[in-house]
Design a protein around this nucleic acid. Structure first.
Lengths: 192, 192
DNA sequence: CGAGTTTTGAACTGACCGATACACAACCAA
DNA sequence: TTGGTTGTGTATCGGTCAGTTCAAAACTCG
């Protein structure tokens, strides 16, 4: 009943996400977003309301994709220990492109703001913890993780380890150094 | 031979550091810095040249103080394991005031820029690694750390763990959760 | 007392910020 | 074709950005 959109909204969100990921929230101007998406100001504001709302969309896009990939590994084959090792491997490889993690970068830059962005960050944390706790529970049962471990503790430890790996990536650590960290972390929770 | 300064330069750097710590680099305006320091624009620019130069001073102020406190603990009494535990305890307590760590926040927001700020961040990483490696070496000798550990590996692991704790603090983790993470991390390197 | 040097405050610079106004183009349903 | 609705491009909004200018103020030293 009206003029249709000339652009793919999802593709625009993806482009905006890349821009925010590269430069951070504050340092990315609306002009940068127009250039990245290839859209005019009007289109951006018509479709996404504000810079912050677009950032929220971009962040949701990122967390959804990232959580999905992580869940695919954790729901896949192998012992819990093997699956957790695989997750840490992907974190290491991703961390070598030295843009870090959009979630960690945002947490560090903005903290937990009292709006939907903060809520999305909290939700991402909770979902990660739940996934890791479930896998840890399985690991204690299948014997690949140390006996007597509290799944919730393991989840907290894994999320912290991943966050640390991401920061180490931003510090410029090498693949070998990151593997060293991951191996030591795993040695704390793996059976034997 | 000329008009003397009406303010304490170190105190001004300290105030600027607090402002940058609270809001991040980009979100802190020169006006914020004037308010925080109590100085006029001219005085700020006369004394510190530019926002970035003042940030570099503030960052140096922070890293010097933080490294000093850490070194005091690591050079103190007790086994290496006890000293490392004490360091992690201070990180946990500091992480509960949810502003995180200025170094980690800056790394996440700016990455490793190709200027003095980036150089200062690299230097801070190197100094931390050196301190931790030395303590780890002592720990292997005094028997408080697991036998056969490479001190450099332990240093990388500890710095990553601390970075992770800092991010977990920004996520809103409780003191208990942070202690859980630190205890699991220590279990990977402590003897027995 | 000045002469010389530096700090300070206030006004100001051009550029850019996020966001909007508005005319018109593009489309759909009738 | 036409009326209603939405997308798009251009120009622009007031405000703030980092940084500068400049004259008056405040000091030291001769």
């Amino acid at each position: 009943m009206a003029r249709p959109r000339e652009f793919d909204e999802t593709a625009a969100v993806e482009s905006a996400m890349q821009a925010f990921w590269d430069r951070g929230y504050e340092a990315t101007s609306t002009q940068d977003l127009c250039r990245a998406t290839g859209l005019g100001r009007s289109s951006v504001y018509n479709a996404f309301t504000s810079k912050r709302a677009l950032f929220r969309r971009a962040l949701a896009h990122y967390t959804t994709r990232e959580l999905g990939k992580r869940k695919a590994i954790l729901d896949g084959p192998g012992t819990a220990a093997e699956r957790l090792t695989a997750v840490l491997d992907t974190v290491i490889e991703a961390g070598l492109g030295n843009r870090g993690c959009l979630v960690v970068n945002t947490l560090a830059e903005l903290g937990l703001p009292n709006d939907e962005v903060g809520a999305a960050l909290r939700s991402d944390t909770a979902q990660n913890l739940a996934m890791f706790a479930e896998c840890a529970r399985e690991g204690v049962l299948d014997g690949s993780l140390r006996d007597g471990l509290d799944p919730a503790d393991v989840a907290e430890f894994l999320l912290s380890t991943i966050s640390g790996l991401r920061v180490m990536g931003r510090r410029g650590s090498s693949r070998e150094a990151l593997h060293t960290v991951a191996d030591l972390a795993l040695s704390a929770i793996l059976a034997h």
